[in-house]
């Protein structure tokens, strides 16, 4: 390609990329603009007097901090439970032979595609009966319905990528099955586990429907429903506040993107595309 051709291509490509990225850039810009600039016509792109005031108000005047804390606990707990279960389960599915193993793998794939709205009605009844409605625990339980099949599916694919000879070698060298798992397989699986954990965390962090149905108190509300309830309860919608909340809500993601993006792509390859 000639230099001009390359220049043209790069300009067009970057224009496209910027169009895609614009809504999120606008979110950040809005969150930093003082109220006075928000409704100015014509709107300026960069804030003239950037302010963190909206963030301060968010933390001081709204239950945002509680929601944030809830989301952290919720996503962490779900990830921990699901990763622990799924790692052992994936090991079993990939490296053991017993009757029903294939049907089980099939069931995992099936549930991975199952719509949440089907499960939510019985789960709601279940939580009410168990007296767990309006607790974070009910959400952890509900989140396993999508996170566990997902994690199992990903980890199964990662597990299959660990050479079987490594386990065989460990067995011959004197390890038991579980010993070989701990000494040899688990260390090889670490990148896959990290990647699966990131996905599980993000899924749980972003979940909305279960949180909407199962939790109806500010004490146990995670960010997704919490921030939406701020929108609904406010008399006039405070967009700067909502955009500040959106930025804060995306914070863990930004961290992941900045430092751990390789794990995301890896997880994608393992779970989504290879099937």
């Amino acid at each position: 390609m000639t230099f001009l051709g390359r220049l043209a291509f790069n300009l067009i490509a970057w224009a496209l990329v910027l169009v895609i990225a614009f809504p999120l850039a606008w979110m950040v810009v809005t969150a930093l603009k003082p109220q006075s600039e928000l409704f100015r016509r014509p709107p300026g792109f960069l804030p003239e007097a950037p302010t963190l005031d909206h963030f301060r108000r968010l933390l001081e005047e709204t239950p945002f901090a509680t929601y944030f804390g809830n989301s952290v606990i919720l996503a962490t707990a779900t990830t921990a439970v699901v990763i622990a279960l799924a790692t052992l389960g994936a090991y079993s599915l990939v490296r053991f032979r017993y009757r029903g193993r294939e049907s089980l793998a099939f069931l995992v794939l099936f549930t991975y595609l199952l719509p949440s709205v089907v499960l939510i009605l019985p789960l709601y009844l279940m939580m009410v009966r168990l007296g767990l409605a309006n607790t974070l625990a009910s959400l952890v339980i509900a989140y396993t319905t999508f996170a566990l099949p997902y994690a199992l599916w990903l980890l199964r694919s990662f597990m299959a990528g660990v050479p079987e000879d490594l386990e065989s070698a460990a067995l011959v060298d004197g390890a038991s099955r579980l010993g070989a798992f701990r000494d040899v397989i688990l260390p090889q699986l670490v990148p896959g586990i990290i990647s699966t954990a990131l996905f599980t965390f993000i899924l749980s962090w972003n979940e909305y429907l279960y949180a909407l149905v199962l939790v109806n108190s500010d004490a146990a509300r995670p960010l997704t429903t919490g921030v939406m309830s701020m929108l609904i309860s406010a008399f006039n919608i405070e967009w700067s506040l909502l955009m500040a909340a959106s930025v804060m809500m995306s914070l863990p993601l930004i961290v992941v993107f900045a430092f751990l993006q390789g794990y995301l792509t890896r997880g994608f390859g393992a779970g989504a595309v290879k099937g």
Binding site: P23, M228, S250, L253, L264
Partner: peptide, 13 residues
């Protein structure tokens, strides 16, 4: 990025 961002955030924006 849009794929990983929460639907709530996407909708608000």
């Amino acid at each position: 990025f849009p794929y990983f961002v929460s639907t709530v955030v996407a909708v608000l924006v």
